[in-house]
């Protein structure tokens, strides 16, 4: 087999793996269980936005729309209640943060304790790029590509034997 054949399967798997998160991100459009009713289209949109941005604290890597945990159910119901009672989005977010802490937010607020979280990856990338740049720069200065002097060319030719012609 040619090397390409060995590569085909892993490449295929990688392609599938890359596609998967995209299909998952499309996700559900409504909570799986109870349908909520709202007075207006706008309220419905606010609800959908909130249940995507708030974390289910039991099943930590899911947001409220993805989770079927009883608590997620209760929190969705609570959000719907508050929306229908006329609470604005910030009030609902504050309500959740007061009870469950910043952890409930999928986008944590930018403050002292979260700077590392927000800027850590960028800092790591910059350090990596910096290191790579330094190494490449050094290598370039170390490996000079100066042309051979006449003496060296002479020596090279004698080492190669027959004046540099290929043996055939």
């Amino acid at each position: 087999m040619r090397p390409w054949n060995y590569l085909q399967l892993p490449l295929f798997v990688a392609a599938i793996a890359l596609l998967m998160p995209m299909t998952a991100a499309a996700g559900p459009t409504a909570p799986p269980s109870e349908p909520m009713t709202f007075d207006s289209e706008l309220d419905e949109q606010r609800y959908q936005k909130l249940i995507r941005e708030l974390r289910c604290t039991v099943c930590q890597n899911q947001n409220l729309i993805e989770s079927n945990a009883p608590l997620a159910n209760d929190l969705r119901r609570q959000i719907a209640l508050m929306i229908n009672d006329g609470s604005d989005t910030d009030e609902i977010v504050d309500y959740m943060v007061a009870r469950y802490g910043d952890f409930v937010l999928f986008r944590p607020p930018m403050k002292g304790i979260t700077y590392l979280l927000w800027f850590g990856p960028v800092a790591m990338l910059l350090i990596g790029l910096g290191t790579l740049g330094t190494i490449l720069w050094r290598r370039r200065t170390q490996v000079g590509s100066e042309p051979l002097s006449t003496d060296e060319e002479e020596r090279l030719r004698s080492l190669l034997g027959d004046g540099g012609h290929d043996k055939t």
């Binding site: 604290t57 009883p70 609570q78 009870r99």
Partner: peptide, 13 residues
């Protein structure tokens, strides 16, 4: 029964 007081106390587990 409803778990509403639980929500006020931030109960999740």
């Amino acid at each position: 029964e409803s778990g509403l007081v639980g929500i006020d106390y931030g109960v999740y587990a």
